[in-house]
Design a protein around this nucleic acid. Sequence first.
DNA 1: TCCGGCTGTGAGACCGTTCCCACATGAGAC
DNA 2: GTCTCATGTGGGAACGGTCTCACAGCCGGA
Lengths: 336, 336
Amino acid sequence: MDNPTIKEIALRAGVSKSTVSRIISGKGYSSPEARDKVLALIEELQYKPNAVARAMVSQRTHNIGVLLYRRDHPIASHPFYGKIVDAILLAAASLNYSVFVTTDHDMSYRSADFMMEKRVDGLILISRLQQNVIDHITKFGVPYVMVNGSTDVDGVIHIVNQDEEGGRLVAEHLTRTGHDRIFVIAGPQTHRSHHLRFKGFMTCMALSGIEVPEAAVRYAETSTFAEGYDIMSRQWGPFRAGRYSAIFATNDMLALGAMKFLLEQSVRIPEQISVVGFDDIDFAAMFAPSLTTVKVDAGEMGRQSIKLLDQLIRQEPNVAHPSQLQPKLIVRQSTK
Amino acid sequence: MDNPTIKEIALRAGVSKSTVSRIISGKGYSSPEARDKVLALIEELQYKPNAVARAMVSQRTHNIGVLLYRRDHPIASHPFYGKIVDAILLAAASLNYSVFVTTDHDMSYRSADFMMEKRVDGLILISRLQQNVIDHITKFGVPYVMVNGSTDVDGVIHIVNQDEEGGRLVAEHLTRTGHDRIFVIAGPQTHRSHHLRFKGFMTCMALSGIEVPEAAVRYAETSTFAEGYDIMSRQWGPFRAGRYSAIFATNDMLALGAMKFLLEQSVRIPEQISVVGFDDIDFAAMFAPSLTTVKVDAGEMGRQSIKLLDQLIRQEPNVAHPSQLQPKLIVRQSTK
DNA sequence: TCCGGCTGTGAGACCGTTCCCACATGAGAC
DNA sequence: GTCTCATGTGGGAACGGTCTCACAGCCGGA
C-alpha cells in the first residue's frame, strides 16, 4: 500500500540509490542494463517520486499560493476573480506548478503565514489586500505578483487593466450614441480599478463638454448586485421623471443589479434607459437584455501573473514589468 | 533572507534542537527559562516551522487535492462548482488543511498523478470523473470522497443531492399551479444528477396522470446556457403556437438560456410561460425575471466533503456515509 | 609502460524536522 | 544511603530524495 521509495527500487534492481536517482533524473552516467531494470521496476511498482523529499533538498516546492481576499462572500466562484483563478490554474499546470488556493478573510496574516510554512515558491495576490498584509508578505522575501489589487505598490509587479482608458471608452460610447444625461454608479473608490474607471469616465465627459453633476453620481459601498439594485431603487424618483437616459456602473454586478430593478419597474432597456457595465463577466452576455460592457481580460491576467511569477522564482535577470491590459468595449443589447 | 531553522534557534538560545522542538510542539519537558528564550527568538527571527520537513517525518502533508473535471471551460468560476470549491476552501482552512486546486482535462491521469507525487493526504473529486480515473486513484490507497459525481461507485463516499426528490418538487409545483403542457430540457443523461432530476420529475408527472409526451422532451448535449438558448430557438415554432405553458430544465444554466431566448421573442415570463431550473446558482436570483428553481446546497456539499475526508484521513473507526442533501424548492418570479 | 579521460558505480553528507533513547539532577520514600 | 520517579536536556537516527566525491575499469595516445 505504501509508496515505494528510491531505496526500494535500488534494492530490487541490485544497484545503489545513487544509480536509481541518476537514471530518474537523467543526469550522469548509467548503463543500459541498469536503466532497463530500474525503469521496469518503476513501472511495475508504480513508483512516484516523493515531491516532499525533493523539495526538502532542492529548497523548491514547485508550489505556489494564490491569496484571495474576501469580504463579501464570493471568492473562487466570483464571476470575475474566478476567471483569473481558472487561468492561473491552467497556466500553472503547464509550468509544473501546483497551486494552493486560499482565501484570506478578516485581513489576518493567517493564510499568508500558512503559505510560508508550506514553503511555496511564490505567491499571487488577488484583489484587495490590505497594505499591512502586503508589507508582511514582503518581509518574507518570497517572490509575488499582484493581480488587480486595490492599490499600486512601488516596485511590485502588478497586473492590471487600463481601467482609466476603459472609463474613457464608456464615455465615448455613450456620448457618441447621443446620451447626455448619464447617471453613474461608482464602486468603492478605495479600490484602484473602480476609482480609475470612474476617473477616466469623468475626465472624458468633461472633455466632451458634457456635465455630470454631483447629483448624478452615487458611490457604492460594495460592488455587488444587491448594492446596484438598492442604489437604483433609491434613485427611482428621478428616473421615473425621465431625468436620465443612461447609466454607467463601474462593474457589471452593480450594472446588473440596477438593470434588474429597472426591469422590474417595466422600464424598457435600452429604449428608455441605456446601461453600461465593466468587466464583461459571463453573466453580462447572458442577461436579458445582454449588457454592454468593457471587457477586462481576466484570462490574460491569470496567465501573465504566473508567467511573471515563474520568472521571478527562477530569478531571471530582468523581468519586464507588464504593460497594462487593453480594455475593449463590447456593445450589446443594453445600449442604443 | 532565508528562513531560520530550528537549528539556528537552538544555536542562539544555547540549547539543543531537541529542546527547541519540544518547546514548539509543547510536548515533553522544558524549563521556563529555556521556553522564554526560545519563544523570544522565534518571535525575533520570525521563525516559521518548515512544513515540508515536518511532512517528511510525519508522513502527513496536511494538504489535500481538489480535482475538477472540465470539459466546457468554467471550473473554479463555474457558478455551481465554484460554490463547492469555496466551501471546501473555507472548511479546509478551519481544519488546517491547505488545498491544491487542480483541473483535469482530457481525462488524463496527469493531475491525479501529480497530486500523488505531492503526497496529498486525501482527494476530493468533483463532478464528472471518468471511471478509469477513479480506478486509477483507488489504486493509490489515498482516501478520497466524491462530490456530485456523474456516477455512484460502490463503497466510495459520494456527497450528492437528492436529485430525484428535487425533480418531484418541480413536478409538484408545476402541476399545483395548473400547468399540464410542460416542455422539458433534460441535461446530459450520462450525468447522475441530470438523469435523476429528469427521472424524478417524469415519475411524479406520471403519478399525477399528466402526460409528458416524447415530443415535449429535448435532451441537451451539454448543460450550458448556450445549449439552453439553442434548444429553445429550435423549439420556437411550437411555443409560438402556444403548445406549452411551462418549461423545466434540469439545471439553471439551461433554464436561463431558454429564458433568454424567450424574452428576446418578447414572451412574457411568467404570464405566458413559466420556467423552472435546478441548482439555485447565484444568477438565478439575479436574472430578470428571477428564476424559480430547486436549491442544491453547494456549501453544505463542500463542508461535508472535507469533514468526511478528514475523518478518512485520520482513520476514524466508522465513518458514516452521508445522507443525501435535501433539496428545496425556491419559488421566484419565473413561475406563476 | 604510464597517464589521462571517459564511463559507470556506490558511499555518505545533507535538507529541517520529529522522536526515541540515554543520561543527569534533585526530591521524596523507605 | 540507596532506590525510585519526575524533570530537564542533548545525541542521533529517520524520513526520501539529490548531489558531491572517490574510485574502479577500460581505452587510447605518448
